[in-house]
Structure formats: structure tokens, C-alpha cells
Design a protein around this nucleic acid. Sequence first.
DNA 1: AATGACATTTCATTATATGAAATGAAATGC
DNA 2: GCATTTCATTTCATATAATGAAATGTCATT
Lengths: 264, 264
Amino acid sequence: MSTDLPKAAGKPAPAGTSTLDLALHAVDYLVQQSRPASLAQIAEALSASKATIYRHLVTLQRHGFVRQEAETGRYEAGIKLMMLGEALRQRFDIVSAAREELMTLRDHTGQAVTVCAAIDDELIVLELIQGRTLIEFSTRPGTRLAFHASAHGKIWLAFGSQERTAAIANGPLEAWTPATIISTQALLAEVEAVRKRGWATAPNEVITGVNTLAAPVFDHRKILVGSIAIVGATQFIPPVPDPEQIREVVGSAERISRGLSWQG
Amino acid sequence: MSTDLPKAAGKPAPAGTSTLDLALHAVDYLVQQSRPASLAQIAEALSASKATIYRHLVTLQRHGFVRQEAETGRYEAGIKLMMLGEALRQRFDIVSAAREELMTLRDHTGQAVTVCAAIDDELIVLELIQGRTLIEFSTRPGTRLAFHASAHGKIWLAFGSQERTAAIANGPLEAWTPATIISTQALLAEVEAVRKRGWATAPNEVITGVNTLAAPVFDHRKILVGSIAIVGATQFIPPVPDPEQIREVVGSAERISRGLSWQG
DNA sequence: AATGACATTTCATTATATGAAATGAAATGC
DNA sequence: GCATTTCATTTCATATAATGAAATGTCATT
């Protein structure tokens, strides 16, 4: 019974480095904690010895990923993570290409404006410009959105890769609110409708009382590279938005797309 | 970006983990690159073997710190860094305590509003609310500011720890523009003036043509926990700001401080 | 002074990361 | 269509480098 098929069932050798794995778990742990954690606490949470964790924290600290409270000696996540996050955000062409247009969109509609991009199986907010009323939930840059339960997500399902759309539609669809679409059929129908009309909404699907109106941004190859949206209370952005609002959002998206075409 | 020097004379053993050190350097490298990098390229840049780097990248990828381009197999920084950065930002009490007040401040002044906090020897932007005119440079959350060359920085020098103020004033003072204060004496005099009047400006000191007007936010123990500011072109925020602008900014800062007192 | 709660260091032990070279896979050139 | 180049990936023997238990240092609090 020679079962020497390496990748048959389980994974005996994950082919990585366990030292690094432990250290990264420590970073994750520290980010999750809202208060600085003691060395013993971290060691216990990760089932490692204090000495090991200590050495890793020293190295992480040298790199700025972790910082130590001067008074208590406790450890917490380092602000370098914020700097790295911002550096990463800047890499998306759409962020710089869209700036002025997004300000105009906000001023014309009065609503908050957001920009999203999908990377692999993650949909992430890249930009938020606050409108007249304060929108805080699920809109900060760095936030992850659900493909099936957000207007941005529907844009990506409608105009992004078909593989992703199939995978998402067939996967489990979590209900964020009672209005979230959780049936595969209903989702595919909605996505088809979005593709036809060129814009998407998600009234009450992320947070009850909040609606979003999104449109796609394409690059010079007509490949989807981002989505923009206005976000606001349902009283300002109705489930069926004003034609004027739709015109503004779709028009902005088209102008940004045109701007991206020039970069060849 | 300078992480460490080998400490020529003092300590022969740096007391860390070299494996982790290498992996963190890889993350730094990938964040700095604007394009995805090949395995060989990373290995060469870090003077390590491809096998080693490969294993580290696999582990980093499992944790989301790194991602691999599907087509080319090249590696780039992962969006998890953005998510961690945002999670970290949320931890600052002042961010949630100040939200509504900042919106009001923006609407009253029409200018962009920023919030900063200092951690150890870093001054970092935590929040930006765009005004009527677009302000982009040195104002994004996650950006690091110079203590001696920003209105936020002067607030921290005036109302923060005296050790830091002494260290910064005696350290090298880089000139960002011709107007940046680079003399220790001039800086200390300016800081003293800021302490007396309760607000700070930095006209043309960060970027020529841009001015910032900042004020301190204290917690219930009267300890400085943040600074808020309006940022705009010098034509909107003159080197000597309007009394009305000063009243708005200082008033907002005081109301946020009052809000923080209730959290005991 | 004595205690306790913590971060830090030491040190022997071996588990584990390592690099050279082989392999596989996919473009590119002739 | 075959040879060549350029990658990422895997293998494997070896020694480096990470590890945990326990000792030490440090700073409060009693």
C-alpha cells in the first residue's frame, strides 16, 4: 500500500517555513487585540514558548511591524502596517486617475463616493470621499466587501471574470441583512440585469437603511479595473435611484475610463 | 526604511531570528516595488537562494501578506496589508470620537480636515475628510509627517512629551521647502509660541502653496492624544489665518476633547 | 524587605531552514 | 516542430539556526 502520491488527500508537508508561520500568526494576533498584549499572553495564545515569541517580537519590532509600550513592556501592532497599507493603495492606477472626477461626483450628488477593486477573491475599498452626511460603515479604504451583497460586488460579478462570477454564485451566500440576496438563481438574474443596464444598487443589502449606486470603470483594453459608487441613506438614494443620480455615476465612471485609456 | 545597522562595536548577537528577518525584508521589498517581482529578482535583491525565498513567499501568501500573479507567477504585496492598516487605525479613540465634529468643521470652513497622532517617534495621519478643493499630498491616512515641518507636528512638540521635543529639536531638521524651519532655536521659539496661543500653522513648510492650521485634542487626563487641522491652499488659509478659522479649529478640538473626557 | 508579575537571557539539544542542483512548465526563437 | 531560454517549484543531505525549560533581571506593590 504505497501511498506516495504527494498531493493525494491530506497535506503532510505544507512546504513553507513554520518559524515564519508562527511569527505571522503573532502579527495577526496583535492586530486583532484592541489592547497591547503581554508576552506571556501571546505565547499562550499561540502555544509557543515565551523565548521563541520574544525573539520574534524583537525582530518584528526592528521592522516596525510591532511596537512595545514603553511603560508596561507589552506589545502591540506597529504603525508601519498603516504605512504599508497606504503604499499598497497608491499602486492602483484608478486611485490617482479618478480623484478629480470623484470630487465632482460628490459635489453634484452630495453623497459619499467610494472606489473598489477586486484582487483574486477579495473585493476591497480603495477610496472614500465623504459627502454631506457621514457614512462610516463598510466604506473605509481597506475594508473588504462581499461580492454578492454590495453594489460594487455586483459590478464585478457582471463585468469581471466569469470564473469568479460562477465561483461566487455557487458558493455559500451569507445574509448580511434580510434583504441580502442568498439564492444562486436570484443572484445570477440580478447580475444579468446589472450587465444590461450598466449600473448596480444594493438597497439594504449591506446595512439596513443604506443604499449604494455603482458603475464600472474599464481600462484601455476594456478590462474592468475598478468600480465607483455613491453611498447614502435610502432616503437620499432610493432603491430605484433618480435618473439624475444614475446619469452622474455612470457618466463619472465613463470619464474615468476614458482617462485611463490615455495611459496606454 | 532603515531597519538596522549591525551595531559595529557593541553587541555581537542581535538577539532575533534571522529567518524572520529575511522574510520581513522580502515584504518590505515587495511593497517598495511598483510592479510584481520575479522570484529570482527577490532572491538576488536579498542575497538569498531562490529556494529559501520561495518557501517564505509561500508562507507569506498563506497569510495574505503576499500574492502571486496568476499568469506570470510573479509575486507582489498582498492586500491584507491594507486591511491590517485599517484595523490598526480604528484602534485610536480619537478617530471615532471626532467623526461628526470633523464633518462640521469641514462644512464650516470648506477645507480638508485631517487628524494625526504620534506614536514613539512617528507622527502619522489617521483621518482625512476632503473639503471643497482636493488635497492629496501628505494628508492620506497612513502618511508620516515631520514633527518640525508640519502644523500637526508643532502641536505635538508644544503639547506632547518634552523628551520628544528636545530630541527632535536637537536632531537634524530636514528642509522640505525653502520655508521649512531648520534651525533648532527658531523651532523652539515657534513651539513656544504655539504653546502660548494654542494652535499652529505651517505655511509653505510642507508643500509650497499649502497651509495647515492645527489644534490639540486632549483626553480626560489632559494628555495630548491627537491633533486636528484644516488643510488648504494658502489663498484659503493665509499664513496668519482668519480669526474665524482659528475659532472653528480650536473650538472643534475642544469639543472633541470634551467628548473624550466622558469615556473616563 | 519581600513578594509577584513580568520581560529578558542563557544554554544544550535537535528540529528546521538552508542552498545547490534537478525538475517541470511555459514561453520564445529558429 | 525542435531547441533554447526563463521562469517557478521540488528534492535532499547538511549544518545552521530556532527552540523550550529554567535562570536571571527589573520594576512595581505590599
